[in-house]
């Protein structure tokens, strides 16, 4: 029943200070919108980087002239590496398989029909348990007799190293940015609510005079902050949804019309989860913002 009363008090004060309430709501909207645009971007980059990292695989091309026996020797070598724990998975891709894969990836596979013979070599595709193992794997197989003399071994060494560094950087930079954004948002909302409290300083004085405890005064203000935060967050989420459907999704499907089908390199956060996170953040911003600001006015 007390909560009901505090809630009514909060609504009364929102109505009585409409301009400031709108300002606080818009502030929350902007903060949540930026946060909401940043979190999926960050998640996407992060997962794209880690997807690339897991794609650091070693292709060992086999000479067209290699005998079945030679190929089996190479297969055993790689098998040993797998039992050692350096290789997670390896597959044999025959010449025919290679051509079929190429056909799938091209938008206009008919160009391949012009070829007099299959130019693609067979290969072993090796996935290391860890990108850092790639060098050791290469060292183990590089002098094998079955290797194609021209193609040899193909693996993105520098890419692997850079991706590892990039993954770490993206992670920490992302966390730092989210932290800074949150602090900025709390300060912004706090400032706006301070305006509201300045406007009602006398009112708070009178409340204290008739013996209202600090929490009795604080609750309606905090609820007010939460309401502004929630409304701002909901509007921000609606705007983000519009942008996702109207711009991002359209762009993503447009990307498939390019020469090659890219597939999805990374996964962003699921929208329902993002909504929950953002609405929660909005409410928290409002509560913390007004809570911190009130402290200064409730002394003595």
């Amino acid at each position: 029943m007390r909560l009901g009363m505090f809630f009514r008090e909060a609504l009364r004060s929102i109505r009585a200070n409409a301009a400031i309430s709108v300002a606080a709501t818009v502030t929350a909207l902007i903060a949540v919108f930026i946060l909401g645009a940043f979190i999926p971007s960050f998640m996407y980059v992060r997962s794209a980087v880690s997807a690339q990292t897991s794609k650091v695989d070693v292709d060992v091309y086999i000479s067209d002239t290699a005998s079945v026996k030679q190929v089996n020797v190479l297969r055993d070598k790689i098998g040993t590496l797998k039992t050692d724990g350096q290789v997670a998975e390896f597959t044999y891709v025959s010449k025919d398989d290679a051509l079929r894969l190429m056909r799938e990836r091209l938008r206009d596979p008919s160009v391949l029909d012009q070829l007099p013979s299959n130019p693609l070599p067979a290969k072993f595709n090796i996935q290391p348990t860890d990108p850092a193992n790639a060098n050791a794997i290469v060292a183990a197989v590089k002098d094998d007799a079955a290797l194609d003399p021209t193609e040899g071994i193909v693996y993105p060494q520098t890419t692997a190293d850079r991706l590892l560094t990039a993954a770490k950087f993206v992670q920490w930079a992302g966390f730092a940015l989210i932290g800074i954004l949150l602090v900025a948002a709390v300060l912004l909302i706090g400032n706006t609510i301070r305006l509201s409290i300045f406007a009602r300083r006398r009112e708070v004085e009178v409340m204290r005079l008739v013996g209202a405890t600090n929490w009795f005064i604080r609750w309606p203000f905090m609820i007010e902050g939460v309401i502004c935060g929630l409304v701002g967050a909901v509007v921000a989420v609606a705007m983000l949804w519009g942008i996702k459907v109207g711009v991002v999704d359209a762009w993503a499907s447009g990307a498939d019309t390019a020469l090659t089908k890219t597939g999805s390199a990374g996964e962003a956060i699921a929208f329902p989860l993002l909504t929950v996170v953002l609405v929660g953040a909005g409410a928290l911003l409002g509560a913390v913002g007004s809570g911190i600001t009130l402290r200064r006015f409730l002394r003595i």
Partner: peptide
């Protein structure tokens, strides 16, 4: 203690020259 001041004020009725009513 400062936290007990509200209870003191409840035990005392206060009236001022400028009334100090909540305007809205």
């Amino acid at each position: 203690r400062r936290s007990k001041v509200p209870y003191l004020r409840r035990a005392i009725g206060c009236v001022f020259q400028d009334f100090r009513l909540l305007p809205d």
